[in-house]
Amino acid sequence: MQGNTDCCFCSGNDWFRYRVGAIIISGEYALFAYSEVDKYYYSVGGGVHVGEHSRDAVLRETMEETGLELEIERPLCIVENFFYGTGSLDGLNCHALELYYLMKPAEKKEITVSSFTANGMVEKMRWLPISRLDDYDIRPKTAVRLAKEPPVGFEVFVNEER
């Protein structure tokens, strides 16, 4: 049975989250989310709810954040993401387990849906040119690699930013 609670917890200064990410490509562009508070880009996606299948979570999150009814092409990888929190997670020692899915190609159009982070901050969706992804602050850095060259087979990556 699925609940509405994210698989996330905080214990002292330690923060953990189970998250899904969507790699969404349209021609020479990839879609990323941006938070004015955190001041960096990240993949469209979010927390998996307790009891929710990851495939259902990525479809739910992409719909909530973009208003687009996208389809999954295939699972890409798991990223073990270690970082020190900034912005809304300032001061926290963070560990996120992120399961990424490649979505079927989407039509590049302006996303006007109002989307919010887990902390209630407004986030905007932006199409970024794949050839210039290194020019943007995208976190985790592994997301840049996934958009530029999605792995052929399922892989496990460790993103260490502590």
Rank of each mutant, 00 (worst) to 15 (best):
3 G>T: 15
13 N>Y: 11
16 F>L: 07
17 R>G: 12
21 G>Y: 08
24 I>Y: 05
29 Y>P: 03
35 S>M: 11
40 Y>P: 04
42 Y>G: 08
42 Y>Q: 13
47 G>Q: 09
48 V>E: 08
53 H>C: 09
55 R>W: 06
58 V>L: 06
61 E>W: 06
62 T>I: 11
62 T>K: 11
62 T>R: 00
62 T>E: 02
63 M>A: 03
65 E>L: 10
67 G>A: 12
68 L>D: 04
71 E>K: 13
73 E>M: 09
73 E>K: 12
79 V>H: 04
80 E>C: 06
82 F>I: 15
85 G>A: 12
87 G>S: 08
91 G>H: 10
93 N>G: 08
95 H>N: 06
97 L>D: 02
99 L>P: 01
106 A>M: 06
106 A>F: 02
107 E>I: 15
108 K>Q: 11
109 K>A: 06
110 E>H: 09
110 E>V: 07
111 I>V: 09
111 I>D: 01
116 F>C: 07
118 A>Q: 10
118 A>P: 01
121 M>F: 13
123 E>S: 06
123 E>F: 01
136 Y>C: 03
137 D>M: 14
145 R>G: 08
146 L>V: 06
149 E>Y: 13
149 E>T: 14
153 G>C: 14
154 F>Y: 15
154 F>P: 05
157 F>L: 12
158 V>T: 15
